[in-house]
Amino acid sequence: MKAEVNHCYNSSNNEVINMNVYDNITQTAKLISDATRMSMLMELSGMHSLTAKELAKSAKVSPQTASSHLKKLIEGNLIISRKQGRHKYYQLASENVAQAIESIANISGPLVANSLNSTSKKKKLEFARTCYGHLAGELGVAITEGLIKKGYLLESDSTYYKLTKYGKIWFENLGINISNLNIQTDYLALHIDWTMRKNHLAGPLSLALTKHFLNSGWIKEGNMKREIILTRCGEAFLYKELGINL
Rank of each mutant, 00 (worst) to 15 (best):
K2R: 12
A3F: 15
E4T: 13
V5T: 06
S11L: 15
N14Y: 10
E15V: 11
I17C: 05
V21S: 13
D23N: 14
D23V: 14
N24W: 15
I25T: 14
D34Y: 09
R37N: 08
S39A: 08
M40N: 07
M40E: 06
M40V: 07
L44P: 09
L44C: 06
H48N: 11
S49Y: 06
K53N: 15
L55V: 05
A56F: 07
K57G: 12
A59H: 02
K60Y: 14
V61E: 05
V61I: 05
A66H: 07
A66Y: 07
L70W: 05
K71E: 12
K72H: 08
I74L: 06
I74C: 08
I74A: 06
G76H: 04
N77A: 12
N77T: 13
L78P: 09
K83E: 07
K88C: 09
Q91P: 00
N96W: 14
N96K: 13
V97S: 02
E102W: 03
E102G: 12
I104A: 04
I104C: 05
G109N: 01
G109H: 02
L111W: 04
L111A: 13
A113G: 02
L116I: 04
K122F: 10
K124H: 06
A128Y: 03
A128L: 07
L135T: 00
G137L: 04
E138R: 12
V141Q: 04
I143S: 03
G146L: 01
L147V: 04
I148Q: 00
K149Y: 00
K150Y: 02
Y152I: 03
Y152P: 00
Y152G: 02
E155P: 13
E155S: 08
S156N: 14
S158A: 04
S158L: 02
Y161F: 09
L163K: 02
Y166N: 11
Y166Q: 10
N173I: 06
T185K: 07
W194D: 13
K198L: 04
N199C: 05
S206A: 15
S206L: 06
S206D: 07
T210I: 05
T210S: 03
N215M: 07
W218I: 01
K220S: 10
N223S: 07
N223D: 06
T231V: 01
C233D: 14
C233L: 13
C233F: 14
E235D: 06
E235V: 03
E235L: 05
K240G: 03
G243R: 02
N245M: 06
